[in-house]
Write a protein that binds this DNA or RNA. Structure first.
Length: 485
DNA sequence: ATGTCC
């Protein structure tokens, strides 16, 4: 990205684009990142985030996180808080993969205990957790049962034996967001979704076996409180609402394009920013349907966790309980949620869009589980399968600057097409094996798209978040096994 | 991201 005279550096890691940058901007746009990250961002990010700053009801600033890159309409890494009464809701600000997110699970196992069985473990996980385009799950549901899943999320999993009670408390929204209405979801979306519970998907969706290496614990007290220790094995996975969420987004984009200008007189700079007033019938319907996507995704990750626990129990000959396979947390990346934040000193209800951004509430926030109240919300940041991942916590700084938001991952440096030209999946698999990372993938092309250099430097992204004060490092994890969609 | 174009 090239710096023009409209880009002002507010602090070491906060860059502001003045509303005079383009006609229609209601507020500034702010990009968080080190100078290196900002310079490496694609030019489309600046256009997209300044387009977002033109949306009706947007408050304070349109934000882009340090891992930002261009997406559909909004950049991935975008955070947009709208006035709940006068603002709009936009599917492009949430993403097609509604509630794509990360889950982190601890174990009592050490690397030394897992190493001799790693290949067997990853092979079993690959068999038991369906991955890849069009993969189908082991949970067989009739349409009416699937409607229960999307209304209840992880609650449905608990009732059906796929969850421990404490799993729900350790999931954003307790794994079940209120107000999800299956009647606002198309039959087509339900038909696509009903075989997809318990499936990983493709693209950047994966399941990883990781290790807490000596020297990678940045806050010992917090790590201990979260049940983490040196040489420990943990499991991290990333997936979303599959074809179901995609269909919900597609359906409502169509609706919004029909009514936006004709019925509501909203003019936008890019049709990919299609939106409707949040308090309109169309806006409310999408919000209710989108919440079904949130719940589908929570139920998907919960069911996958059930399978992961079964795999570990089989390989290590002990129950998942005896192996200490407790959740650390589950975060959503692609959402819009009603939250209270101060605007000009007054607490107001806002619709906070986060697209490829993680909620990062600070210590003491009422939405946090009791055990994390003193520390802040766990933030799970997935890196590439070559480089490692992080556990961070939310901060008071995030509450003040970014509506309680931070980065969600590394962010891509190149397109998938470019990655396929530059890397070969089969070769990458061999190289990783030689470096002690055992990878199974549904597709070699898909594997090539996820090679380390296709992502920004995760350490740099996390460093930018910390310097900006929007989250703090707790632990870094190193990959040893990966199931790639 | 996605039954990677109905």
């Amino acid at each position: 990205m090239v710096f023009g005279d409209k880009v002002k550096q507010l602090s070491e890691t906060i860059w502001e684009i003045d509303p005079s940058y383009k006609e229609g901007m209601r507020v500034p746009a702010r990009i968080i990142g080190t100078e290196k990250l900002i310079r490496e961002m694609d030019d489309a990010v600046i256009e997209q985030i300044t387009n977002v700053a033109t949306l009706p009801g947007l408050l304070r600033a349109a934000y882009c996180m340090p891992d930002g890159h261009s997406g559909y309409g909004f950049p991935i890494g975008g955070v947009a808080a709208m006035d709940a009464e006068k603002g709009v809701i936009s599917p492009g600000g949430i993403g097609f993969d509604i509630n794509c997110g990360m889950r982190l699970v601890r174990t009592d196992l050490t690397e030394a205990e897992v190493a001799p069985k790693l290949t067997e473990l990853v092979d079993l996980l690959y068999t038991r957790v369906p991955a890849g385009v069009g993969s189908k799950g082991f949970v067989k549901l009739a349409p009416n049962e699937f409607k229960e899943v999307i209304a209840e999320g992880s609650q449905w999993c608990l009732k059906n034996g796929y969850a421990w009670p404490e799993d729900l408390a350790l999931t954003e929204e307790s794994g079940c967001i209120a107000g999800a209405n299956p009647e606002k979801v198309s039959q087509k979306a339900i038909d696509r979704g009903l075989s997809q519970i318990g499936t990983l998907g493709s693209g950047n969706h994966y399941l990883e076996v990781q290790v807490v290496r000596e020297g990678n614990i940045f806050d010992r007290k917090m790590a201990e409180a979260m049940g983490l220790f040196p040489n420990q094995v943990v499991v991290m996975f990333h997936c979303g609402s599959r074809g179901f969420g995609h269909q919900v987004a597609t359906d409502y984009l169509q609706v919004f394009l029909e009514v936006m200008a004709a019925k509501y007189g909203i003019k936008i700079l890019d049709r990919e920013l299609a939106c409707a007033p949040f308090r309109s019938p169309e806006g409310r319907d999408y919000f209710s349907a989108m919440k079904c996507g949130l719940n589908m995704s929570f139920a998907n990750r919960q069911t996958i966790l059930h399978r992961i626990r079964e795999c570990f129990a089989r390989i290590f000959g002990k129950s998942a309980e005896a192996l200490g396979m407790r959740m650390i947390y589950d975060v959503a990346h692609n959402t819009a949620k009603l939250e209270r934040h101060p605007i000009d000193g007054k607490s107001r209800e806002l619709l906070v869009h986060r697209k490829g951004a993680t909620r990062a509430f600070g210590p003491g926030h009422e939405a946090l589980p009791e055990r994390y109240q003193p520390y802040g919300q766990p933030v799970i940041i997935g890196g590439s399968m070559e480089t490692g991942s992080y556990l961070l916590v939310g901060t008071e700084g995030a509450m003040k600057e970014t509506f309680g938001s931070t980065a969600h991952g590394s962010g891509r440096t190149m397109s998938r097409t470019q990655a396929r030209k530059q890397f070969r999946g089969d070769r990458l698999q061999k190289e990783l094996r030689a470096r002690g990372i055992y990878v199974r993938s549904a597709s070699f092309a898909g594997l090539a798209e996820e090679a380390g250099p296709t992502y920004k430097d995760i350490d740099e992204v996390v460093d930018a978040c910390e310097r900006a004060g929007i989250s703090r490092r707790v632990v870094k994890f190193a990959p040893i096994g990966n199931v790639k969609g």
